[in-house]
């Protein structure tokens, strides 16, 4: 009888403990109903530049979701992007792949309008339809829509497209990163 009571108490204690543990356990993130590839795509930078070796951000996201590629191949995403991907996929942070192109500050394409011959090749290359123009007419880049993917540079037969640093607008202000001054502390003479 005593044993039975003891076992019952033990079970109760275990059950209570589990309840408490469950209650305390922080939910890491609420369940997102979207498929994994979509969720990965949501944190990729959407430059659509193909530097990851895929035809865009979405195919890279699909490959990541299938575990067919590593998370350190997207230069526009930067280290921050790798960190986010690692957190989402519950894997470890990886440094940039050695063969990945270096990451660059955001730039915007600019068409030299006097050289442009209106061949429309860049329009066909632009993944976000950021180039405006038509056959035999001068073309121009919508700077607000350009993601800086550089895909329009290669097809241009007269090399009239160049990348310019994205202009900073007042909304890009940053407080300078707080710098902590390091002071040398006099070391006490040891005996």
């Amino acid at each position: 009888m005593n044993v039975l009571v003891f076992i019952a108490l033990l079970l109760l204690a275990v059950w209570l403990l589990r309840r408490v543990m469950q209650h305390n356990k922080q939910q890491p993130e609420h369940k997102d109903p979207r498929p994994l590839a979509e969720r990965i795509d949501a944190i990729l930078p959407q430059t659509q530049c193909g530097q990851c070796g895929h035809a865009g951000c979405q195919p890279y996201a699909a490959a990541l979701a299938k575990g067919e590629d590593s998370i350190n191949r997207c230069p526009p995403g930067g280290e921050e992007g790798i960190r986010k991907l690692a957190a989402l996929l519950h894997t470890d942070y990886l440094p940039f792949a050695a063969d990945a192109p270096p990451s660059k500050p955001k730039a915007v394409a600019l068409i030299d309008e006097s050289t442009c011959i209106g061949c429309t090749l860049c329009i066909q290359a632009c993944p976000v339809d950021a180039i405006l123009g038509s056959a035999k007419q001068m073309h121009t880049v919508l700077a607000a829509e350009c993601t800086g993917c550089e895909l329009c540079l290669v097809p241009c037969p007269v090399d009239c497209i160049s990348m310019r640093p994205a202009t900073s607008s007042p909304s890009d202000w940053r407080w300078g990163y707080p710098v902590i001054v390091i002071k040398a502390i006099k070391s006490e003479a040891r005996p």
Binding site: D41, P45, Q46, T47, Q48, G56, Q58, D129, T147, S171
Partner: peptide, 18 residues
């Protein structure tokens, strides 16, 4: 600024998909 970048990325995704 992260929020802003996210907005821009969402916009670019929309344009790319279109």
């Amino acid at each position: 600024s992260t929020q802003q970048q996210q907005q821009q990325a969402d916009h670019a995704r929309q344009r790319h998909r279109f």
